[in-house]
Deep mutational scan, measured.
Amino acid sequence: MSIQHFRVALIPFFAAFCLPVFAHPETLVKVKDAEDQLGARVGYIELDLNSGKILESFRPEERFPMMSTFKVLLCGAVLSRVDAGQEQLGRRIHYSQNDLVEYSPVTEKHLTDGMTVRELCSAAITMSDNTAANLLLTTIGGPKELTAFLHNMGDHVTRLDRWEPELNEAIPNDERDTTMPAAMATTLRKLLTGELLTLASRQQLIDWMEADKVAGPLLRSALPAGWFIADKSGAGERGSRGIIAALGPDGKPSRIVVIYTTGSQATMDERNRQIAEIGASLIKHW
């Protein structure tokens, strides 16, 4: 067993022997301040990774656009098919120029040779490549099948209805392509620590998230040296922004954090800054 596999296998073990965790309302004060600064709703939840206990939450059962955070769930569904012998990570998928959609920095470079399922998941999570996500959605049967996968996990809230990039439209009061912070946090925890996926697939999923290259201005910008984070960000229309993450000190994750916002007129930089400040408060009061 590799060191990384050992780390993920012992996530519940280490967490069980940690000192009790206590909620700190100071972080919620910052979440509410972010709402004021952005002029928009902000949803927040913080779960203990081992027990699933909610440590703090704000608007945990209000719907927010998922945006690209759905790509972690998508690759979880792909990995479940791999575990069941219905898919192979090494299978190569070929596609054409007509398949390319807006923001496809990886797939646009491989029109000639195609990409493997493993490479597509890596591109979808680490670079948020939209064509990679659409190609992977095709392998599982489309958005409705991802929703069905989530329902089978016990998540009857999260739903995907459309493809990239239309799913980022974020129309107010439109339930399409949305989740709730509580539902997303619980589902992410199941994917990373539950028995739904094999140990190898859980490790692969967290490795992809740990290698995320496009979430630097968010929670990662607030992390002290030595902290662990595996995350996936999302951005959408109407001032929408979000991030889902597993993080913790001492090089291992111990909490799940989900943050979503929508309806702001603020710039992307300002949305990023507010999420980073929430992260800084979380870490300060850990």
Rank of each mutant, 00 (worst) to 15 (best):
M1V: 05
M1K: 01
S2G: 08
I3Q: 13
R7P: 10
R7M: 05
R7A: 10
V8P: 11
A9P: 15
L10N: 06
I11K: 05
P12M: 14
P12F: 12
F13R: 02
A15S: 15
A16S: 15
F17K: 07
P20T: 06
H24L: 10
P25S: 10
E26Q: 10
E26L: 15
T27H: 06
T27I: 08
L28P: 05
L28R: 08
V29T: 11
V29E: 14
K30Y: 06
V31I: 15
D33F: 15
D33N: 15
Q37W: 13
L38M: 11
R41S: 09
V42N: 04
V42C: 08
I45P: 00
I45W: 01
L47Q: 07
D48P: 02
L49M: 15
L49A: 09
L49F: 15
N50C: 08
S51I: 04
S51A: 08
G52S: 07
K53I: 14
I54W: 08
L55I: 13
L55M: 15
S57A: 15
F58E: 05
R59Y: 04
P60Y: 08
E61M: 14
E61F: 10
E62V: 08
E62T: 12
P65Y: 03
M66F: 09
S68H: 00
T69D: 00
F70Y: 05
K71Y: 00
V72A: 08
L73V: 13
C75R: 00
G76H: 02
A77N: 13
V78K: 02
V78Y: 03
V78D: 01
L79D: 01
L79Y: 02
S80T: 11
S80M: 12
S80L: 11
V82F: 07
V82Q: 06
V82D: 05
A84R: 12
Q86D: 13
E87W: 05
E87Y: 05
Q88V: 11
Q88M: 11
G90W: 11
R92W: 09
I93T: 05
H94K: 14
Y95Q: 02
S96D: 12
S96H: 11
Q97M: 15
N98K: 14
D99N: 10
L100S: 04
L100F: 09
E102L: 12
E102A: 13
Y103S: 06
Y103L: 04
S104K: 02
S104R: 03
V106Y: 08
E108Q: 11
K109W: 09
H110S: 08
L111S: 08
T112W: 15
G114A: 05
T116Y: 05
R118I: 09
R118H: 15
E119F: 02
E119Q: 14
C121I: 05
A124R: 00
A124T: 12
T126Y: 04
M127D: 07
D129L: 00
A132M: 00
A132K: 00
N134H: 04
L137Y: 09
T138G: 13
G141E: 06
G141V: 04
E145Y: 10
L146Q: 04
T147Y: 04
A148L: 14
F149L: 09
F149I: 10
L150W: 06
M153G: 08
M153W: 15
G154A: 07
D155V: 01
D155H: 01
D155G: 01
D155L: 01
H156C: 14
H156L: 12
R159K: 11
D161H: 07
W163G: 09
W163S: 09
W163P: 09
P165L: 08
P165Y: 05
E166M: 14
N173M: 15
D174W: 02
E175A: 14
R176T: 06
D177V: 01
D177W: 01
T178N: 03
T179I: 01
T179L: 01
P181Y: 00
P181G: 04
P181T: 05
A182C: 13
M184W: 01
A185E: 00
T186N: 13
T186E: 15
T187C: 09
L188C: 09
L188G: 04
L188F: 14
R189H: 13
L191W: 05
T193I: 14
G194C: 11
L197W: 03
T198H: 08
S201W: 03
R202Q: 15
Q203N: 13
Q204C: 13
D207Y: 14
D207G: 14
W208R: 01
A211D: 15
D212M: 03
D212T: 06
K213V: 11
V214T: 09
G216S: 09
L218K: 02
L223W: 03
P224C: 05
G226I: 03
G226T: 12
G226R: 10
W227F: 08
F228I: 08
I229Q: 02
D231I: 04
D231C: 04
A235Q: 04
A235D: 02
E237T: 11
R238Q: 12
R238I: 07
R238G: 11
R241C: 04
R241M: 04
G242C: 06
I244W: 00
A245I: 02
A245D: 00
A245M: 04
L247G: 01
L247H: 01
D250Q: 15
D250T: 11
D250K: 14
G251D: 11
P253Y: 10
P253F: 09
R255P: 00
R255W: 01
I256L: 12
I256D: 00
V257Q: 01
I259W: 03
Y260V: 06
Y260R: 00
G263K: 06
S264I: 04
Q265L: 14
A266D: 09
A266R: 13
A266Y: 08
T267A: 13
I275F: 14
I275N: 00
I275W: 02
A276Y: 10
E277R: 12
E277Y: 08
I278Y: 01
G279T: 07
L282C: 11
I283E: 04
I283S: 06
K284T: 15
H285I: 04
W286Q: 03
